[in-house]
């Protein structure tokens, strides 16, 4: 555990050195830039619009950061050979991989917390409104980013960064359209192999739309506790699965 956390800590330090945390300024600018577009003077509508759009933006930033943080973490260490100094110490490959993943989660948590604060401040400043419901939205984004990061990190144990970015983008897309597009295709009854393929995809892929709560946050109702717990469990399940698959590959890999 100690070694896992040490490795995680270094992921965060490395992110700091690469100035990845500056993304929160970019986010601030983006939210600020979009807020003057409010279409009406009705306070309720404005608040709804602002919350909805900030959470959507948070989701975009969170998912992109999850990929940015994950794709090159292991390939980079293999290329730079810094991995030898770690794995020749009493550090197992499982500890290494899980440490890296926890480090990514830590980095995401820091970034998303600051973003949440930015949203609270912005909404507060614009509309003199304190809307803690956005925290629920940011939490949902974190849970989704955790799945994306796990997918990307798992994949990075054998795929190069460019392929990984492409595959993760595809994964993200499929997981968001699965209840709509894929389901519809399945119902339409495409034949043979295509049907089997879609069936497998349908049941294997997580439904990432479940993490999209920007509307509920927009309305200000938020989500129920049981819903929150359900998506948390969902996130943990899929994240663990992807990291574990990555481990199965990484365990046997020559470095």
């Amino acid at each position: 555990m100690r070694n896992t956390l040490l490795i995680a800590g270094n992921v965060i330090k490395d992110a700091a050195r690469k100035k990845l945390f500056y993304v929160v300024f970019l986010f601030g600018l983006a939210v600020l830039g979009l807020s003057p577009l409010l279409p009406t003077f009705d306070l309720g509508v404005r608040a709804q619009f602002l919350r909805d759009i900030s959470i959507s933006l948070t989701s975009l930033f969170g998912v992109v950061m999850a990929v940015v943080l994950s794709v090159n973490l292991i390939p980079g260490e293999v290329d730079m050979r810094t991995i030898y100094n770690i794995l020749s110490k009493p550090v197992s490959r499982a500890q290494y991989l899980v440490g890296k993943y926890l480090g990514i989660l830590g980095t995401l948590a820091i970034i998303l917390s600051v973003m949440a604060l930015e949203i609270l401040i912005l909404v507060g400043a614009r509309l003199s409104l304190f809307t803690p419901v956005v925290l629920e939205g940011v939490l949902a984004v974190f849970l989704e980013a955790a799945v994306i990061a796990a997918f990307s990190l798992g994949l990075s144990t054998f795929a190069s960064a460019p392929i990984n970015v492409f595959a993760t983008a595809l994964f993200y897309l499929l997981c968001h359209v699965k209840t709509g597009f894929l389901h519809q295709k399945l119902m339409e009854g495409a034949g043979g192999l295509a049907r089997v393929f879609m069936w497998v995809l349908y049941y294997l892929l997580p439904n990432l739309e479940d993490f999209n709560v920007s509307q509920q946050v927009g309305y200000g109702s938020g989500v129920t506790l049981s819903y929150a717990l359900r998506i948390a469990g969902y996130s943990i399940l899929f994240s663990a699965m992807f990291v574990f698959i990555g481990y199965l590959v990484f365990k046997r890999r020559d470095l």
């Binding site: 270094n10 330090k13 490395d14 700091a16 050195r17 730079m80 050979r81 810094t82 030898y84 100094n85 020749s88």
Partner: peptide, 13 residues
């Protein structure tokens, strides 16, 4: 044990 890899490299930060 201790290991010195060939042309070692370390976390630059």
């Amino acid at each position: 044990l201790g290991f010195l890899p060939e042309s070692p490299y370390f976390y630059g930060f």
